[in-house]
Amino acid sequence: MNSLSSTLHWLTDPAQWRGATGIATRIAQHLEYSAVTVVIAAAIALPIGIAIGHYRRGGVIVPFTGALRALPTLGLLAVLALAVGIGILAPMIALVIMALPPVLAGAYSGVEAVDPTTVDAARASGFTEWQVVWRVELPLALPLLVGGIRAASLQVIATWTAAAFLPVGGLGRFLIDGLATRDYAQMLGGSVIVIVLALVIDGVVAFIQRRVTPTGVRLRQRSGSASLAV
């Protein structure tokens, strides 16, 4: 109970929210690191995932990227830190690598799952391959595509915390610095903030995922759920 009250006092202390090492600054740093990581991963993985989904060529690439999930995060961080030096570059590269599989899988699965008859009908109407992708496949693939970004975002937010053993900012500093000084209120408070931040971001992306789901798909999902209930 003493730890909980100490943590609550740490979280509600206005002094902890101010300054270059305050909670507000650490949250902003963590969001910045995470956003940049996800954007870079998406810029790499989305075109590849859409292409292999369109041409149905994901048999080799997707399992290969899925194998990246098995890489030990801390080990990868340490190796990259030794290779490129201590700083923001090593964890950024490591986290981009870790974010690639879910984004790629979401893009590939979304495009690949589009009904082939719908694609054939678009081609028969005179659509070019680019128009088929942009106007037919992508709108229908958006729910799964955004779902991949959602999974990557949660993974990145959580893993940037572990990257704090390198001299970078973010919410992980509360855990590392708190451990060094045995300030358990700071450690638990930092963990709570990471959890809340992850839940908020997940809720925001989940809302976007629902909004981009085509109406026809939502209606089919509801009818399918109703049929199962009966």
Rank of each mutant, 00 (worst) to 15 (best):
A81H: 08
A83C: 00
V84H: 12
I86R: 02
I86E: 02
G87Y: 11
L89Q: 04
A90L: 07
A90V: 07
M92S: 12
M92E: 10
M92W: 13
L95N: 07
V96L: 09
V96P: 09
I97V: 06
I97W: 13
P102Y: 01
P102V: 02
V103A: 03
L104S: 07
A105N: 11
A107V: 06
S109F: 15
G110P: 08
E112K: 09
T117H: 05
T118P: 06
V119F: 02
V119C: 04
A122D: 11
R123Y: 12
F127W: 01
T128F: 14
T128P: 11
E129A: 14
W130K: 10
W130E: 04
W130S: 07
Q131L: 14
V132C: 07
V132I: 14
W134E: 05
R135P: 08
R135Q: 04
V136R: 13
V136M: 15
P139W: 09
L140P: 03
A141M: 02
L142D: 12
L142A: 14
P143K: 09
L145G: 06
I149C: 03
A152F: 12
L154M: 11
L154R: 07
L154P: 11
Q155D: 00
Q155V: 00
V156L: 11
V156E: 00
V156C: 03
A158M: 06
T159P: 01
W160A: 00
T161G: 13
A163E: 15
A163F: 07
A164V: 11
A164H: 13
A164C: 07
L166N: 09
P167A: 13
V168D: 13
V168K: 01
V168F: 05
G170V: 05
L171D: 03
F174K: 07
L175I: 04
I176N: 04
G178N: 10
L179E: 14
T181E: 10
R182S: 03
R182F: 08
Q186Y: 14
Q186S: 10
S191I: 02
S191H: 02
V192S: 00
I193T: 05
I193Q: 08
V194T: 04
I195Q: 01
A198M: 02
A198E: 10
A198K: 06
I201S: 04
G203L: 14
A206S: 06
I208R: 02
R211N: 15
V212W: 12
T213E: 03
T215R: 15
V217M: 12
Q221D: 08
R222H: 14
R222F: 13
